[in-house]
Design a protein around this nucleic acid. Sequence first.
RNA 1: GCACCGAUGGCGAAGUGGCUAACGCGCUGGUCUGCAAAAUCAGUAUUCGCGGGUUCAAUUCCCGCUCGGUGCUCCA
Length: 494
Amino acid sequence: MAALELFNTLSGKVERLEPVGAPALRMYACGPTIYDYGHIGNFRTFLHVDVLRRFLRQQGVAVEHVMNVTDVDDKIIRNAKAAGKPIAEYTARFEKAFFEDMEALGIERPEHVPRATEHIAEMVTLIEQLAAKDIAYQTEDGSWYFRIARFAEYGKLSKKDLEGMEDGARVDADEYEKDAARDFALWKAAKEGEPSWQTVLGAGRPGWHIECSAMATAILGESFDLHAGGEDLMFPHHENEIAQSEAASGRTFARHWMHVRFLLVEGKKMSKSLGNFYTLRDLLLKGHRASAIRYLLLSVPYRHQMNFTFEALGAATNAIERLRTFHQRMLRGGFAAGVVDATVTAATAKSASEFTAALANDLNTAEAAAAISEMVRAANSAADAGTLGGENAAEVLRVLMLFDEVFAVLEDRDEELTRAALKWAEAEGRTKDAAPELVLKLALSDAEIEALVEERTEAKKARNFARADAIRAELLAKGVVIEDSKDGARWKRK
RNA sequence: GCACCGAUGGCGAAGUGGCUAACGCGCUGGUCUGCAAAAUCAGUAUUCGCGGGUUCAAUUCCCGCUCGGUGCUCCA
């Protein structure tokens, strides 16, 4: 079993990650704020956390994974108001969409997905504990703040030295008399037109950071193995989580911290004003495949900034197509029993060990994907030459499964997912956002395609190549590719 | 402004103080095919942003510069 070596933001070093004090590895990853559809930058983070949990499981480590859903915050309140919808109705819609998108991208559902609004009591208890130590204090308007001066280790995650940091002009000016500008809100006093809870702290709603501390502690305990999130959350969010949790419990909150670096699109940070902002649904409607998006977002290791381009997305689509074709070929069988190609045996073993070693080495997904290539080439070559044995194929399939347990791109659900996206667009009145060629591609049913393929086979038998080629061209125009083989014609959607 | 990260072929991208700088996609040519597709073989960076330094040896370490990105404020 390979041990996973993972970079730890807290220590600044690559360290072995393993469960401590429990059979399962306990991990917490910051989840979505459900105020809009998820964009590909969001999903890059969730995808890499998914790879982490899949790889751990492959290595025989059970995982208990918590991902919060933030269903109350400023943006939600603002957007719901703008949409003229009650908060609960507004968030329910985007929460549903979020989990649909996760599913489309093959991201496993964590063991726990707590909503913030269902854990207000735990947050209140935590704030009370801090108040009892005089670390939390209330201001005149009724809000509660965390006194940073009382937590000496503040800044240890993001390596910030507060002494050297000026209280900048950018600190929110409309906050009430906080003791220090950097003190952050634990509990926001109720305001007209905002949701609030009546508690011993007074009427109000939780600050952003407290929910993660409270829910992580409630489900995983005061001290657990790993906390993950996007790099932008390192400060202040994660720093504040540590402060709140450790000040209250006196124990180490998360031992290991993992941060996924940012995604750029066409070399620039995604932003609506640059016109390079994409949700998963935008891309599906443009005709891109969910599997290719998954594969591309995983093709650059989590610790590197990744540049998303449409050219690379096309390359990912082709790369997956090759793997799927290969997978089908191995599955189809027909290889001789008792024959063994030694080159394939060696290549398969090498690919398997390099695959695992690459992931064990700080989740190097780029190297892991590359490791499979040698095996694919060797097995295809041997199959062409007729030297591939049945045992070879079985071994190759085993390694391919090793790959797919983590990458999860071999099963073809793309057409189904694209159809679902189109249906959604229709319901939302966004059909105009769908690429016209996409609609064309999905126009033919499988039965219609098969009838045409059959007709072409007949034409070929009759040596009517003109007719056969006309059918092939017609199908190609509608996104269907034909492959002739000695066991007949096969087709697939392009 | 302060801090941090990156710069590798047509594109994406891995990597290392010294073997022919992975892998994928693309492109060119061969094999296969009625023709294609698929597959395969060969070719496709004498070179790793620029300048300097350390070293027997640097793409890999150090310094400076340029460019891109990120954090310092809501953000995956």
